[in-house]
Design a binder for these strands. Structure first.
Lengths: 158, 158
DNA sequence: AACTGCCTCATCCTTTCGGGTGATTTTACT
DNA sequence: AGTAAAATCACCCGAAAGGATGAGGCAGTT
């Protein structure tokens, strides 16, 4: 949803042009029929003002769009009964995997096929293949089973 | 041809909307002039409509900046003395695997291919396939990755 | 001897994986 | 505004995996 004004500059240009054209028409109307169209001018001004108000209000109210905030909370816990998984962040960083690649890896570890992963992530099979391919390169393995085994050994996944 | 429409659908959409709105304006003007109703109400409606237009336009053009993604991240630091593997013999018995099938399963878990397993066990590739096939049947899985995952979950293999 | 379970191997066929390449679009950062 | 990294998707091709089926050999049991 992050589409810049750039993408809609055509729309803005179009709208502005239309607006200018209408203003011109109104102005011409005004010049030749001052009395009978005074109401139209009034209405036009009202419209412009309130459109501006809407824009201003929206910008004012919906402006604080915070970016992703990552809060890492470190909690030391001694867990004897249930074996808790602790991700080895260092190893994970070393591999330099992208978020998508990691997702694919995790689903692979669950025994899912590429097609199933594709459905799960709402992307095409080809995309999953691309991710898995790069994943294998980065992990220096040849097969998904190796990737999963290595990832588990390195405690990258549970 | 279609691509051109798609590319400028934003402009078309906004232009059309604006045009429709102006038509509505005219229509209202017409109605209220005919009925000679209060001008204040007319102005009010205009104000509301254009305020809405402003809000709508702003929301459309200045899309939400950043979608905030997951935030919390608890890092649990715990110390495990020695995670020794203890084979779950009951589950293993339930599956009723033969010794050969279990061997194949263990090698699979190391990320080995059928061919590599065949070399390791000094049997043919076909034999490994046969074992793995029966293995999957008994474990009620469809893929080697699933078999490995299930076996680890059941603590049949480390 | 007959039966049974396991191991072995084969063939045919289909599906899944993985490698390679290229293209477009998003997103992020400068 | 321009660049770099990610993410998306496509097509091709060969390798690996998996399903189905049949068959021969071997050991232990009945």
């Amino acid at each position: 949803m992050i589409k810049a004004i750039k993408k809609h500059k055509g729309a803005i240009l179009y709208g502005s042009s239309l607006a200018l054209l209408l203003l011109l028409l109104r102005w011409l109307e005004f010049r030749f029929l001052i009395l009978s169209t005074s109401l139209d001018i009034y209405i036009g001004i009202i419209a412009v003002i309130f459109t501006g108000l809407g824009v201003w209000l929206t910008l004012k109210l919906f402006k604080p769009k915070a970016k992703t905030i990552v809060i890492e909370k470190e909690v030391e816990v001694y867990v004897t009964p249930s074996p808790q998984f602790e991700r080895n962040q260092k190893e994970l960083d070393n591999l330099n995997l992208t978020s998508r690649e990691l997702e694919v890896l995790e689903l692979m570890a669950k025994g899912m096929s590429n097609q199933e992963i594709a459905n799960q992530l709402f992307v095409s099979l080809n995309t999953v293949k691309t991710h898995s391919g790069k994943l294998f390169e980065k992990m220096e393995v040849k097969r998904r089973t190796q990737a999963v085994d290595k990832a588990k050994t390195l405690s990258i996944i549970p």
